[in-house]
Design a protein around this nucleic acid. Structure first.
Lengths: 224, 224
DNA sequence: AAAGTTATGTGACTTATGACACACTTCCCC
DNA sequence: GGGGAAGTGTGTCATAAGTCACATAACTTT
């Protein structure tokens, strides 16, 4: 499969571009470049201009932010097929987090200027993008109002399910970082995980969580 | 001042259109219609197709939603100069709440079809709209992550400040509805308001709150 | 392998806030 | 002007989750 065809598949998988027609996707993916990163290499940092959209072809990129105490907190892991920086490429605002290669990686790059020129040539696509952004706004406000009002177990179960979708049943994450993800104290996370371990929903190891019973976990995530 | 000039001013005041150039605003406002509503008349209901954007010229429109128990909960008041339905007009999705005239009102109406045709004619404006939507997405995610994690006094102070910006220092709202706004129980809202009354930050009357010391209130809203 | 560092497990305590219960007041309307 | 209905004020209690304070376990570095 050509690089462009690969990139087209990745674009198509992202909610933001899922509704575009095959021809539009094809023209969009013809604008892509590729970029290689060595292990630990920094792709961009907080405050950099948001001048491109990235898709992971192989490897892994960590999206992280420097906490005030100097420690680094990982906000997300992007693996093959994941797309990141969609919003930055559209509005050109500064990056709000750092991106670092977690291993040697190859990325698809769609530069802002190319993308904007494309939108100007194809106003119908621009209108679709607008619709997609609007959906995202609706989705966000629904989620947020709903999500932060949920009790910790529900938030935690949801986050674990989301991580499982990306990484399978062996999630490699510290309880500390999980706490940051769901907005809770590490100790609270630990206590909940212990409770679930006793129910055989999952197993715990240092730096990793083994999901044993996704059925129960998704039931908790749905808040019964 | 002509209706169109008035509408142009209203568009300009809204964050969503604030960055557009004067000529673009002018062409956009030439597409507007007006509509009259009697007191209590229903403008649209939850589930209706989102086929237009509205601006209040005079009067007041309540945005509300029917709670499951049959009672109606007001989500927002739109007064002269306020714009609502921006997202629905862009993506054409269904309304997510009801809109009812709180008094005899006159509205500016910008129909979805006219607006989309306009965007197709002016792709540069479409790109600006995209940038504005992106800003809104960023703003939303920042706010939400921050806001729901804040303690009740902070959330309450912020909401009161926002209401004060719209209605001045005499905010006409029940404590019940204020509770819905900030996602808290009525009793908790009442207790916090009582505390602030004792500090002379505000006064309470049935169905209304008189803000006495905005300086202190904004300080609380900033979370010190 | 000893020492240091990071991640995890757990108990004791505190606090914010929701839930319930009920009294009191104001408004509206017949 | 009497009887609801809606809004408000307050006490008591329960609970979820944060904080603090350690103990322990697992990797890393020298």
């Amino acid at each position: 499969m050509s690089k462009q065809a690969e990139f087209a598949v990745i674009l198509k998988m992202n909610t933001m571009f899922a509704d575009l027609g095959a021809d539009e996707i094809q023209r969009l993916s013809s604008l892509c470049h590729t970029q290689h990163l060595g292990n630990g290499e920094v792709l961009f940092q907080k405050g950099d201009a948001g001048d491109a959209l990235f898709g992971v072809r192989r490897g892994q990129v960590r999206i992280e932010t420097g906490a005030s105490d100097g420690s680094r907190l990982t906000l997300n892991f992007m693996g093959p097929g994941d797309l990141f920086g969609e919003v930055a490429v559209l509005d050109g605002q500064n990056r709000t987090a750092d991106a670092t290669a977690g291993e040697a990686s190859e990325l698809f790059v769609l530069r802002r200027e190319d993308f904007l020129a494309f939108l100007e040539r194809e106003p119908k696509v621009a209108i679709k993008i607008i619709a997609l952004l609007c959906q995202r706004i609706r989705w966000q406000s629904e989620r947020m109002e709903e999500s932060m009002l949920q009790p910790l177990p529900v938030r935690l179960a949801r986050r674990l399910c989301a991580l499982a979708a990306d990484f399978g049943s062996e999630v490699h994450i510290s309880q500390e970082q999980l706490g940051v993800f769901v907005g809770a104290a590490r100790e609270s996370v630990n206590r909940q995980l212990q409770a679930w371990r006793k129910e055989a929903i999952l197993d715990l190891q240092r730096g990793r969580i083994l999901l044993r019973n996704m059925t129960k976990l998704t039931a908790i995530a749905r808040n019964e």
